[in-house]
Design a protein around this nucleic acid. Structure first.
Lengths: 233, 233
DNA sequence: ACGATAACGCCACTGAGTGGCATAAACCTA
DNA sequence: TAGGTTTATGCCACTCAGTGGCGTTATCGT
């Protein structure tokens, strides 16, 4: 199955570079690029987890993947970038899904929740969840990774807001509510990610989705939550 | 007014180092340290605004302030850090205020809003608002600064959550609501900051506070906001 | 006035990230 | 299937952020 028609059987494929697999009726060059990209991500997550983010130099990584440092920077914008790629891919996919979303009478916040869950459902790349888990655990230990992650969440939010303004009947461009709705989605997702990565569970995508749903349902109660001062004796 | 009693009149103070002023019955050494710190912040904001963040090297900055690079890194953890210091100070002050807050029957979210506004009211350092404005405008142009800013918002949220758990009657440590409440506060504040920095207004602290109040009031409506699909003909 | 204690300056070093240019591989067309 | 074009890659030299060590200077306590 899935035999290439025209390309004269490159066959030069090395050993552990199986992934990507599906979804490629792509030109050979593109596939190679994707393959080294994926190899860089996987090896990075592995090395960073073993020796620590700061304990691994880019030279180490590039040597392990047998790629020049120059090539690394053609695929990723920074050392942090390669290690946060899995989540980055998801947020990018969300933007794509927002292009074809439909509020259909529901509140915007609810639509965004459903869209994110749908996006999550589409992250079917082999082992995506495991990569996200490794990535998130690294991010908790490595400030610069955490910062980088938050940053592209922010960029995604802005891009998403632009899409909403283009596709929905949002009159006032200064109305903070749609922007805050996106912030809430991002916040809820990140909290879900935290608890999911912390719990000892097997870490499947389905479990993550369940945590995300829980976080979403917690949102309304957040506004009314009332507690007292603790007894300080 | 406010003449120093014991110190044998240092008088070596250079020209534009007036600030700090109040609140120092501090030992001379501390005051000097604070003074160079402030000089670094102000000069950094100035140079970064003029020549751009990437167009200014730390050597440039250190030379301008007449300080060694080693000294710079004793005061700040990174190049981004010095340029985001004003807001960083505010978030730190918020943690302080949270140590003595009291829900008094109000919802937690509301208490947090009031506390943040109170903290904002206490940022009385000379020209604080102007610095924040410069800093934020730089952060919008400089990804690494934006990332750094988001990062310490995140760290502050975590620290704040710990304080809440210690001081308030929050039974379940896994309850996401207090954490989400903090996320909402941070998000609302950042949105307020954005609009405040974008508007041509004079940029006073009072104006910022007004924007923050607006953002806070927009929160409940965020959950119910409903719009339709735009007509795509 | 005099030790103790910081803060500072200087220096050498690692490692992230960039620009330029030559090379090789994949693509396309005849 | 040969030949020209496109595109990714490798290599090299370079800038600059950030760190560690150590000698020096300035403030503090008594």
């Amino acid at each position: 199955m899935t035999t290439q028609p025209s390309p004269p059987s490159p066959a030069a494929a090395a050993a552990p570079l199986a992934p990507i697999a599906l979804a490629d009726r792509l030109p050979l060059r593109e596939r190679k690029k994707l393959r080294t990209r994926q190899a860089l991500i996987d090896t990075a997550l592995e090395l960073f987890t073993e020796r620590g983010f700061d304990g691994t130099t880019l030279d180490d990584l590039c040597e392990a993947v047998e790629v020049s440092k120059r090539t690394f920077f053609r695929n990723f914008s920074s050392k942090e970038d390669v290690a946060t790629a899995p989540l980055h891919d998801m947020w990018t996919a969300l933007l794509d899904d927002l292009e074809s979303c439909d509020p259909g009478g529901r509140p915007v916040l609810e639509m965004l929740q459903d869209t994110l869950l749908a996006t999550l459902d589409r992250m079917t790349t082999e082992d995506w969840a495991r990569r996200v888990r490794l990535s998130h655990r690294l991010a908790e230990k490595t400030p610069s990774m955490g910062a980088h992650g938050l940053h592209f969440c922010d960029r995604t939010s802005r891009a998403a807001l632009a899409i909403l303004h283009r596709r929905l009947t949002l009159a006032d461009p200064y109305d903070l509510r749609p922007r805050l709705a996106l912030d809430m989605i991002v916040a809820a997702f990140n909290r879900a990610l935290e608890t999911w990565a912390a719990r000892p569970g097997s870490g499947t995508r389905a479990e993550l989705a369940a945590h995300v749903r829980d976080a979403f349902t917690a949102i309304p109660g957040t506004l009314t939550l009332t507690v007292g001062l603790r007894d300080e004796t």
